[in-house]
């Protein structure tokens, strides 16, 4: 599976994942309290410049940002008609700023760094017995590992429909996909336990 990380050596790449995530969260909160469309437009411009400094390229950036930007745009247009131009402008600039900053953090942080940071953040939860911190990385790895297998299985089920002249329907596709996939859970779990990967159990 491709990730949205982009190789590079910019200042953002060198900052630790924790600093970037904290900065993103704080900016997100601060943006809620700024209500001047003019100030928010400047913030969006600054975020745009920061994102541009990563040199991801216009085409690639458009592909990445389009889906989120379109929802922001549609909601802003909706706000313009049902509410006011002021409301529409604050929504547009506030969320665009946040989107650009979030996309910049995503593009400059590797999956490994994110997982290390999340594992570290989960340590206090581990102490109160809520999660096992090491399970987080393991589960993320498991999902990425088995997405292609589930996709292969989905195609096989579609082919089986075609071979028997059946029209594929959500129900007749989803049910065998779920049962076949979940049935492998026992063996995968046994393999994890047999290798002693999660320690005692």
């Amino acid at each position: 599976m491709n990730t949205l990380y982009v190789e590079g050596n910019s200042l953002l790449h060198r900052l630790s994942a924790r600093v970037k995530l904290l900065a993103l969260a704080l900016t997100g909160i601060a943006l809620i309290f700024i209500i001047s469309p003019f100030a928010l437009a400047i913030a969006a411009l600054a975020a745009g410049l920061l994102y541009a400094s990563l040199r991801i390229g216009w085409r690639q950036s458009w592909l990445r940002l389009r889906p989120v930007f379109l929802t922001i745009f549609v909601v802003a247009v909706f706000a313009f008609f049902v509410s006011s131009a002021h409301e529409a402008a604050t929504t547009l600039f506030r969320l665009t700023t946040l989107m650009l900053l979030a996309a910049a953090a995503t593009a400059t942080t590797t999956i490994g760094d994110f997982i290390d940071e999340i594992t570290l953040a989960a340590r206090p939860l581990e102490r109160i017995g809520l999660v096992k911190a090491a399970d987080i990385g393991l589960s993320v790895g498991l999902v990425i590992r088995f997405v292609p297998e589930v996709m292969t299985r989905y195609r096989a089920i579609r082919e089986a429909h075609a071979a028997r002249g059946l029209k594929p329907r959500p129900l007749t596709l989803a049910v065998p996909l779920i049962i076949l996939t979940l049935k492998s859970a026992d063996e995968i779990a046994a393999a994890i336990d047999a290798r002693g990967i999660r320690g005692q159990n």
Partner: peptide, 11 residues
């Protein structure tokens, strides 16, 4: 194909 932290910044 959406993903990344930006997905949490949509309305």
């Amino acid at each position: 194909g959406r993903g990344g932290l930006a997905a949490f910044a949509a309305p």
